[in-house]
Design a protein around this nucleic acid. Sequence first.
DNA 1: GTAATTGCAAATAGTTTGCAGCAGA
DNA 2: TCTGCTGCAAACTATTTGCAATTAC
Lengths: 147, 147
Amino acid sequence: MMATSVDDRVDALLAKLGRRVTGPRRRVARLLAGKRGSFSAEAVNEELPDVGRATVYRTLKLLSDAGVLCKAILPDGSPRYSIDHSWHHHHLICSSCETVQEFRSVELERLLCELGDEIPGRVLGHQVDFYVNCVDCLQHERAAEAH
Amino acid sequence: MMATSVDDRVDALLAKLGRRVTGPRRRVARLLAGKRGSFSAEAVNEELPDVGRATVYRTLKLLSDAGVLCKAILPDGSPRYSIDHSWHHHHLICSSCETVQEFRSVELERLLCELGDEIPGRVLGHQVDFYVNCVDCLQHERAAEAH
DNA sequence: GTAATTGCAAATAGTTTGCAGCAGA
DNA sequence: TCTGCTGCAAACTATTTGCAATTAC
């Protein structure tokens, strides 16, 4: 277990923003924390039938603006949300199961920072996504090939 | 003028795919070729009032699947289309005017390729976006500051 | 107590689809 | 000619908004 649970992070965050700690907000955060990978807003909505659709969308936006959740855009443009485990990271997006994993590389950050100097204009940020077949999907693939 | 015009590229492409060269397809390609930056599907639709909305969407998909157009996803998830000038490239996306420019770096490609070996699973591809304020927007900003 | 938050339903935005008529090869 | 393409309108999907009721603090 981590020292700061998702509940703690959400409580601290909402207090800092002067927002109220409510059941629906906790439930959305807990759902994302308790599951692997990433979720679409609609999937979160389906898994929490007694939280209103509007509240799900509002909460996802609130939490991801605040940095508790991380919003990743799939190649087709559709958004996915997951718990943001670390400050700055990139994504490994599985093209077959659409799972999003975090990825970090000091070397990559350094190079991106250097490249920033060559880029005309002012660099505000960057985003790197790898499209992959994740280990799980490769295993299923192999299992299927072997009958 | 370039040796291969957009018309030539579109003709060659459609011939290769066994698709027909039609007015609407040409008009969509020419619109994108003749303008700076990138367009939303809806913007293309508005600029070509006598091409049907469905045809605009179908043509954008056809041309971008085939590599004549390039589809970039803005930070908010909305898609933008522009002429694809070079084979493999990344994007400089201006956060204020939403213009998308192409960007290339041999060093970056090499590092991304190396990182691929450390990544669990099979790497299919990658995408890098820089979020920037473009030179034009910085100039406008400075002009505004100076009254 | 009271202002923020919620849930519902309706509104909206962006995109896709079915189909009758048109047109490129 | 004949199949692919187009335009229209309707359908769909994902997300946002207005508002009365609810609830955290």
